[in-house]
Write a protein that binds this DNA or RNA. Structure first.
Lengths: 240, 240
DNA sequence: TAAAAGCCTTGATTCAGATCAATTCATAGG
DNA sequence: CCTATGAATTGATCTGAATCAAGGCTTTTA
C-alpha cells in the first residue's frame, strides 16, 4: 500500500464476509478463520481510477478484493501498455510481486472498490500452522498460472471474434460464481482495455461486438452486455 | 509419473547437485538440504520425444529438471495445440497442476532428459518446518506468473521479428545462468513449436530467422543459432 | 546406403486486423 | 445546463502474417 495514508482503513472481518468461500479463507474452520482475521486487519477503499499500487513499489502485502473491480497492466519502456488481467471480488492481487519483492504491474480500480490487506510475511508464518491455508494458497497461485496459460492460448491461436466470445464467457462465469446474472452485466473497462488484454485494437473489439450483436447472439449498449444465446456464443470459441 | 514403471529411477541428491542454486534448494542450509534429499528420492530418465505426463493424469508430484529440455502444451478440443512453455535444467514442472489436482498440459522431453520427482504433499509438509523452503517455493510460483505475463505482452503487442528476438534473448539469458554460451546454442525445438509458443506460423518464424540473419544480427544453421550482435538484437525488442 | 518422413526455406497470393478518418454518443466539469 | 473531453462506432484503405505451393535439406529407419 502506498505510504500516503489518506486512504481510509477499517477493520476487515473474514468470518462474516460473504466472499469467504471464493477467497483466501476457503476451507478453514471457525477457529482458523479467527486467526486469519487477525492477520487481515485492514481494509482500504480505492476510488475509481486510483492506483492500488504502481509497478516498482516494494512488495509487502497481497490484497483481496472485497468490493469492486481492478485491472493490472505492465508498461514497456517504449510506452506500450498491456493489460495483464481483470480482477473481481474474492480474487487476490499481487501474486506476481512475490518473486521480485516489488510490484511488477500497475493496479488500478475500474470502479469504487475496497480491498483487504494481507501482509505476506505474516501469511507465510500463519500458513505454517494452518496446512489448509497453505494448500489453498498454493491452489490460488496455481490457478493464476492456469488462467494465464488460457490467455496465452487465446492470444496465440484465436481470431478476434473468438477472443471476444471467450472473454465474455469468462466474465459471465465469474459473475455467476458471485451471484450475479450470467447473461446480463456491465463492463467495467473500456474497449481499449479489452483490446489490450485480448491483443486487439479497440476498433477491432468494437467491430467484434457489433458482429456478435448482428448475429443476435448478444446485445451491446455501450458498457451493458446481454447474452441472448449462450450456446452460440460458446460455439464461437474453438470452432475456427 | 505414469504407472508404467519401465521408466528407470535412481536416487536423487540435491546436496551434491550442481543445479542447486537454480532449483528448489536455493538458500537452504546443509541440514535442510539433507531433509529435502529424503523427499526428492527419485530421479527418472525420459527419452527424447517421450511424455513426462499427459494432460488429465492425476497430479501427485512436481518434477525438477536435472538434465535435458521439455515443452509443455495444451490441446483445445478442436485440435489446436498451444505450446505454453519451454523448460530447462533447474526449472520446475507441474505448477499448473496444483490447482486442479490434475496435470493440465502434456509435457514432452525435447532431448534425452532426467527429472527429480518432488511429491507435492510431502513438499508442503516439509515446508511447514523449513520457512526458507516455503518462501522460495512461493517465489518460484510467482516467477512463473511473471514469466507468463511477459509472454502475454509479447503475444499481445509485438510483431513477428520482435517476438523472435525476445525469444532468443530469453533463451540466451537462461543458458548463461547455466554456464553455457550466451551467443551460441542449439535449439531443441522445431520452427513449428517456436511458432506455437510465439503465436506465429512456422513459415513466419523461418522468415523472421532469415531476416535477422540477412541483417547480420544472428546466423542460423538449422537448429544452431549464433548471436553476433546482442545489442541490435535487443534493440529489435520494444522498438516498434 | 537408399528411401521415406519430417523439417525448413522461400516465393506468390490472400485476408484479418491495423491504421487512418469522420461522426456520434456519453460522461464529467465548469 | 451546456460544453468539453473521452469513448465508441463505422467506413475506407493498407499491411503483416497466414495460407498455399514447391523444392531442398536432415534425420530416421528399413
Amino acid at each position: 500500500m502506498r505510504k500516503n495514508s489518506l486512504i481510509p482503513r477499517v477493520n476487515a472481518n473474514c468470518a462474516t464476509c460473504s466472499l469467504r468461500e471464493l477467497c483466501l479463507p476457503l476451507g478453514l474452520n471457525e477457529h482458523e478463520i479467527i486467526l486469519l482475521d487477525k492477520l487481515v486487519s485492514h481494509k482500504c477503499k480505492i476510488q475509481r481510477g486510483e492506483f492500488l499500487h504502481r509497478a516498482g513499489l516494494r512488495f509487502q502485502s497481497l490484497y483481496a478484493i472485497r468490493r469492486g473491480f481492478f485491472k493490472t497492466c505492465i508498461l514497456e519502456k517504449d510506452g506500450r501498455q498491456q493489460v495483464t488481467g481483470f480482477y473481481m471480488t474474492g480474487e487476490l492481487l499481487g501474486l506476481d510481486a512475490i518473486s521480485t519483492e516489488t510490484y511488477n504491474c500497475d493496479t488500478v480500480a475500474l470502479e469504487d472498490s475496497e480491498v483487504c490487506e494481507v501482509p505476506f510475511a505474516k501469511l507465510e508464518e500463519m500458513s505454517r500452522n494452518i496446512p489448509t491455508l497453505m494448500h489453498h494458497f498454493h491452489k490460488i497461485m496455481s490457478r493464476e498460472i492456469v488462467k494465464d496459460h488460457g490467455v496465452m492460448m487465446l492470444l496465440g491461436s484465436m481470431r478476434a471474434e473468438e477472443r471476444l466470445a471467450a472473454f465474455l464467457l469468462n466474465l459471465s462465469r465469474r459473475f455467476v460464481k458471485r451471484g450475479y446474472s450470467a447473461s446480463d452485466f456491465i463492463l467495467r473497462m473500456t474497449r481499449e482495455e479489452i483490446g489490450s488484454y485480448l491483443g486487439l485494437k479497440f476498433e477491432t473489439v468494437s467491430r467484434a461486438f457489433s458482429r456478435l450483436q448482428d448475429e443476435n447472439i448478444i446485445s451491446v449498449n455501450n458498457k451493458h452486455v446481454s447474452i441472448h444465446d449462450m450456446d452460440r456464443l460458446r460455439s464461437k470459441v474453438g470452432n475456427s
